[in-house]
Design a binder for these strands. Sequence first.
DNA 1: ATGAATTTGTACGTATGTATT
DNA 2: CAATACATACGTACAAATTCA
Lengths: 253, 253
Amino acid sequence: MARIDPAPNAPQGPVIERRSGITLWRQIEQSIEADIVGGRAVSGSRLPTEAELACRFGVNRHTVRRAMEELERRGLVRIEQGRGSFVAEDVIDYRIGPRTRFSEVIARNNRAPSGRILSIAEVQASDAAAAALKLRRGRRLWCVERLGLADGVPVAYALHHFPRARFPGLAEALARGGTLTRALAACGLADYARATTRVTARLPTPREAEHLRQPRNRAVMVCENVNVDQDRVPVEYCVVLYPAGRVQLVFEF
Amino acid sequence: MARIDPAPNAPQGPVIERRSGITLWRQIEQSIEADIVGGRAVSGSRLPTEAELACRFGVNRHTVRRAMEELERRGLVRIEQGRGSFVAEDVIDYRIGPRTRFSEVIARNNRAPSGRILSIAEVQASDAAAAALKLRRGRRLWCVERLGLADGVPVAYALHHFPRARFPGLAEALARGGTLTRALAACGLADYARATTRVTARLPTPREAEHLRQPRNRAVMVCENVNVDQDRVPVEYCVVLYPAGRVQLVFEF
DNA sequence: ATGAATTTGTACGTATGTATT
DNA sequence: CAATACATACGTACAAATTCA
C-alpha cells in the first residue's frame, strides 16, 4: 500500500525537528519514552524494528539505534539480537525473609495480588519432600498446585506439600476457598516461618511455561522452601517457580 | 532381530543373572550406580542410550527403563526426553550469608577451590552499579572479571565493581597475584560483608557459556550482590553468574 | 537438518555542526 | 581568525542471532 507523501516533504508520524537545538536521537528517545510511560506501548510488547522506526521518524537507522541504546541503558526497553526490541517489564522485587507472604510481597510492589488453586491431590512423599519434612519416603502428603498472580499476570507457580497426618482437613478447608495461610490456620497452624530456601534455575516444561504464560526459552527460578512451625518442626515443603523476567528474588542480611 | 538366549555365549559386559532372586532391573540399576559412584561414568556425561544399554545387558529396553526411572528418582541420573540420559552432577550447595566467601563455600562442599582473574579494567559506573554503590553514574570503577572453580570446573563467573577512588591501588595489588579478599586487604579494607543479594536467571550469552563451560540452552542464575564495609558503606557491587546445573543457592533464616 | 528471510550488532567511511584552544 | 577536537547524522556493508518454511 504505497502511502502518498504528505506534502513534498517529511513523511513522519511523531514530530521531531532538525536544528532545534535538541539532537535527533534524543527527541526520538523522548518520543518512545513517552509512548512507554503513557501506556501506548504496553509492557513486554514488541516495539517496531529499527528500520521501521527510522522510516517513521525520517532518520537513519543509526540515529534510532542511538536512541534505543539509551533507552536500554536506562532500563525502559530490552533489545534482543535477531528478535527485536521490547518494552521492559517492571520486575517484581520478591523480598524473601523468614516471614515472606505472597500477597504482602505483591502488595509492596504496588500490584494487586491474587491466587488460584489449580489442584489438590494426595501424593507419596518423594525423597526431596521426605528429607525436607523429616519423615519417611512414601508418607502421604497433600500436594497443592497453586498459581500466584500480580495484577492478573502469573508470577509464581507453586507445588506445596503438607503432611496429611498433621493436616487431615486441609483439602476441605482449601476447597471452601480462601488463602493457603487461612486454610492452614483453620487446621490449627497458627503461625509458620521459612527455615531454608534453595534456589536454582532451568528452562520450564511446556506445561509450566503455559501456566506462567511465558516463552519456553526463558528461564524460571526454582525455589525449594522448607517452612516450620513455632517449634521449628517442618510443616511444609514447597517448590515455587518464578518467571525470571518478571521476578527478582531479593535477600537482605 | 531374534535374540539368541544368553545360554552358551552371551555378549554382555556387566554381569547380571536371571533367576537370581534379584530382579533384572534392580541388578541393572546397581550396575549403573556402581559405574557412577565408582567414577567410571563421569559427572555430567552422557550415558548410553536405552537401546544400547538393553543390548549390553541382554534385556529388553523396558527393563532398562525401569532401572533408569529408579536412578532418576534417586537423583543419580537425569533423563531428558529426546536427548538422552546423563549422570547427575553433584550440585554445589552455595550457602549464602553475610560472610560468604567463595573458597570457604567450595571447601565445605569437599571440593578444591581456585580462582582466575580474567581481566581488570577501568569502567564508568552503570545505573545499577551507581545505585548499589551510592555514587553518581559515570564515576570510575575497577571492573574485575573473575572465574571461580571447584576441582577445576567453573562454578562462578563474576564481574566485581569497586570504586576506584576508594581503592586506587587495587589493580596493582591484584596484578601481584593472590585472592580478591587479600588484594582488598592490601588496599586497606580489613573486612567486608554482604548487604543484599538479588537473584534472577536467564540463558547465558555465548561468551558466558564458554567461560562456564556449559551448554547455551541451560540457565544461569544471576546474583547481584552489594558488599559493605564495617560502617555499612558500600564497597563492592558484583554480578555473579552460577551455572544452574552445578550450583544451588541456599539461604537460611 | 537446511536455507532463506528478518532483525539486531559491528565496523568502516564521509560530512557537518559546535565548542575549545 | 584558524586549528583542533568532539558529537551528530547519514550511507554502506557485512556479521550474528533468530525465526520459519
